[in-house]
């Protein structure tokens, strides 16, 4: 596949991802009085990014997620909370996140898009629904030194090791035609804040 066709494919899936996300968000907004708030911020590990780039893999946070860069800490992505309910310290519930995640293999021209991102407190994993499919796939697991607190209604989860889930690695490798992703691969750190709606 040529570079042009890769760009077209990426653009197409990105638009589709945006459309799916917009539908999801508006549907949620209609069912809640006061929407839950918060965000999942992933601080990407520079070593992981270098290794990914060396293998032709790029990861892009799709709107309405936002990407950021800090000279000291590097790249980050922030996914806004759009719905759901969860008791993080009770380890149950589901938090819906806006935006999407695009993975592209520049060597093969293949791409994967995940929409309907969420954090499943039951499974303790960031999940996403592959474009054109309906079942969520566990993508990332917050492990390592993990702390859960709740103050004044704001629940906070921090993890100094955000690892690729076995299911996510298998799906991404298959979809992108690579063997780059492995279960337990360190991708960065995660900070999830969540204030329940009412």
């Amino acid at each position: 596949m040529s570079r042009t066709s890769v760009r077209l494919t990426v653009a197409a899936v990105a638009v589709a991802a945006l459309s799916a996300t917009a539908m999801s968000d508006s549907a949620l907004a209609a069912t809640t009085t006061t929407a839950p708030t918060g965000s999942l911020v992933i601080q990407e590990d520079s070593t992981f990014l270098k290794q990914a780039a060396a293998n032709g893999i790029i990861a892009v946070a799709l709107p309405n997620a936002t990407a950021g860069y800090d000279a000291a800490t590097g790249l980050s992505a922030s996914f806004p909370v759009t719905g759901g309910s969860a008791n993080l310290s009770g380890y149950y519930g589901n938090i819906q996140l806006g935006g999407g995640l695009l993975l592209v293999n520049l060597h093969t021209g293949k791409a994967a898009v995940f929409n309907n991102l969420a954090f499943s407190a039951d499974n303790w994993a960031v999940t996403g629904v592959p474009l054109g499919e309906s079942a969520p796939v566990s993508l990332l697991d917050p492990v390592g030194n993990t702390t859960v607190t709740k103050n004044a209604g704001v629940q906070l989860l921090t993890a100094d090791d955000l690892e690729i889930d076995a299911a996510g690695a298998q799906y991404a490798d298959t979809k992108l035609g690579t063997a780059f992703f492995t279960a337990g691969q360190h991708t960065g750190t995660a900070t999830l804040t969540f204030t329940a709606g009412s």
Partner: peptide, 13 residues
């Protein structure tokens, strides 16, 4: 049992 990552996580005041 708790999920991987949840088991071993810490909470405090």
């Amino acid at each position: 049992t708790l999920a991987v990552g949840a088991c071993g996580s810490v909470t405090h005041l």
